[in-house]
Simulated assay, not measured.
Amino acid sequence: MIITSIGNPYRHINILAEFIAEQLKNRVSFLKARKKAIELTEQTDTKGIQIQIGGHLDGKEIARVEWIREGRVGNG
């Protein structure tokens, strides 16, 4: 097992997704988790971010999907 240090961890999408998932497991509001994820990526000088969260958000009976896009997101 090799352990490596990552300079800007919140610039990697897998780490950011794990952060959001952990926040949701700890019963943090999805709006607060989404806002915090955007703040963390803005600190890493990322051009943009798109977040999509789905399921029974905030304990509601009906499942839904919420998404937000900040900055420039695309294939190039």
Rank of each mutant, 00 (worst) to 15 (best):
residue 13 I to L: 05
residue 19 F to D: 03
residue 34 R to I: 14
residue 17 A to H: 04
residue 44 T to K: 13
residue 10 Y to G: 01
residue 24 L to M: 10
residue 14 N to D: 15
residue 7 G to I: 06
residue 43 Q to C: 03
residue 32 K to L: 14
residue 75 N to L: 11
residue 15 I to W: 02
residue 57 L to W: 05
residue 47 K to G: 00
residue 28 V to M: 06
residue 60 K to Q: 15
residue 39 E to Y: 08
residue 29 S to A: 10
residue 34 R to E: 07
residue 22 E to Q: 13
residue 41 T to Q: 01
residue 62 I to L: 15
residue 56 H to Y: 12
residue 23 Q to F: 01
residue 76 G to E: 05
residue 68 I to D: 12
residue 39 E to M: 04
residue 10 Y to Q: 07
residue 46 T to F: 02
residue 13 I to W: 02
residue 30 F to P: 12
residue 9 P to Q: 01
residue 58 D to S: 08
residue 11 R to P: 00
residue 32 K to E: 14
residue 73 V to L: 09
residue 37 A to M: 06
residue 32 K to V: 05
residue 3 I to A: 05
residue 49 I to K: 01
residue 47 K to S: 11
residue 43 Q to M: 03
residue 44 T to E: 15
residue 5 S to L: 14
residue 38 I to A: 01
residue 33 A to E: 04
residue 34 R to A: 09
residue 73 V to T: 11
residue 69 R to N: 08
residue 41 T to S: 02
residue 53 I to C: 08
residue 73 V to R: 12
residue 49 I to P: 05
residue 19 F to E: 11
residue 25 K to P: 01
residue 17 A to M: 11
residue 45 D to T: 00
residue 45 D to Y: 00
residue 12 H to T: 04
residue 17 A to Q: 13
residue 3 I to V: 10
residue 47 K to V: 07
residue 37 A to C: 07
residue 31 L to H: 06
residue 35 K to S: 13
residue 63 A to F: 02
residue 58 D to L: 03
residue 5 S to Y: 09
residue 58 D to V: 11
residue 11 R to A: 08
residue 65 V to P: 12
residue 10 Y to D: 04
residue 5 S to R: 14
residue 37 A to D: 07
residue 47 K to M: 02
residue 32 K to M: 08
residue 44 T to R: 06
residue 23 Q to S: 13
residue 22 E to H: 02
residue 12 H to P: 02
residue 72 R to V: 12
residue 8 N to D: 10
residue 56 H to Q: 15
residue 52 Q to H: 03
residue 2 I to V: 04
residue 71 G to T: 04
residue 58 D to R: 07
residue 72 R to P: 02
residue 59 G to T: 13
residue 33 A to R: 01
residue 61 E to I: 08
residue 14 N to W: 03
residue 42 E to Y: 08
residue 59 G to W: 13
residue 36 K to V: 14
residue 41 T to W: 00
residue 15 I to Y: 02
residue 40 L to Y: 12
residue 73 V to W: 09
residue 57 L to D: 01
residue 75 N to H: 08
residue 22 E to Y: 04
residue 30 F to M: 11
residue 26 N to S: 12
residue 13 I to H: 06
residue 48 G to D: 06
residue 46 T to L: 15
residue 51 I to T: 04
residue 68 I to W: 12
residue 30 F to G: 09
residue 61 E to H: 12
residue 14 N to S: 09
residue 55 G to A: 11
residue 10 Y to M: 10
residue 9 P to S: 03
residue 62 I to Y: 05
residue 72 R to K: 10
residue 18 E to I: 04
residue 75 N to M: 07
residue 36 K to S: 15
residue 20 I to W: 00
residue 36 K to H: 06
residue 71 G to D: 04
residue 7 G to P: 07
residue 5 S to M: 08
residue 2 I to K: 14
residue 66 E to I: 12
residue 23 Q to R: 15
residue 17 A to G: 08
residue 4 T to E: 15
residue 74 G to Y: 07
residue 7 G to F: 01
residue 16 L to S: 03
residue 71 G to E: 10
residue 68 I to V: 15
residue 16 L to Q: 13
residue 70 E to T: 08
residue 64 R to Y: 03
residue 9 P to I: 00
residue 19 F to Q: 03
residue 36 K to I: 15
residue 1 M to H: 13
residue 6 I to R: 03
residue 2 I to M: 02
residue 75 N to W: 14
residue 25 K to M: 04
residue 16 L to A: 10
residue 57 L to K: 09
residue 6 I to D: 11
residue 2 I to Q: 09
